[in-house]
Amino acid sequence: MSGFLPFWPEQASAYAASVDRLVLAFSALIIVLSAPVFLLIIAFAIKYRRGKPADRSHPMNRNVWVETSWAVIPFLLILIFYVWSTQLYFGLHRPPADALEIEVVAKQWMWKFQHAGGQGEINELHVPTGTNIKLNMISQDVIHSLYLPVLRIKQDVLPGRYTTLWFNADKPGTYRMTCAEFCGTDHSVMGGSIVVQEPDGFSLWLETSATDSTLAAQGAALFRRFGCSGCHEPHSSVRAPSLAGIYGQPVALNNGTAVIADAQYIRDSILLPNAQVAAGYAPIMPTFANVATESDLIALTAYIQSLATDNSRSAPIPTNIAPEGTAP
């Protein structure tokens, strides 16, 4: 489409193409609905100009049926498009389970991307074509919004809460990435690019950008440095729940309810440990709110996620995990 229509933005995913089809079809409808207004106003202004003779007999001043029809018929036509667009939107909010996950931290005024293999990027995001990618995003300060125009998607990035965005890019290239939510002084330069590569090229990039340790391994180091291991590992003097195998599982709470131990719960439990205390434990954990950055919290979560289901009570420090194997 971008080839033969001037002023049409590039598309780099099947989803982008389907949004564009919706835009074109809906634009056609609204032109049909509005053309009579434009044409008739001009035609009437000419034909019935004051002082000009014209057939003005039997003017109508009301007609309930005519009025009802021009209220209802356009609305029903628009509802067809409502269903179409809402389905696309729902699809955008249901990321596939096999997606390759990339962690995103936004802060004034930069984007930080963290791959599971430990590769980190600033203001640049490498992704392979033909792969479902899911971004888990959080902000360290104000609200930002990750906007990828070629994919026709954006999602606000909130402080204190993970939001997600998923896509499947199919056209290699380097495209614009911007912040869409006003975030302060350097908002208009808080951008960068998304680099979409063929899977081979992406693997090569992963290898050349590899660091000493995976994200989970970085988390394990933090787990020791912050002293988490002192309480959460077996045989410690303080009684704290074991974290092995809890990720994604329900956790019974002191107040009788239960939550799923997802990234949000783990993050909140590190920052506000006494808000949702596991059943049978005393609320004695201190907060790490002034110690751990959002990037630290992501690494710690990745580490806890990596702890295998209960086969090793002593938390192992994992070695390099191949990025392909990290999707849950």
Partner: peptide, 26 residues
Amino acid sequence: SLVVAVPSGIKVYNWTATLWKGHISL
């Protein structure tokens, strides 16, 4: 949000119909 467009649409169509067979001043 689509529902709230209906009364606005009524106004626009009704104004257009008002001009029909009028004595239109410019």
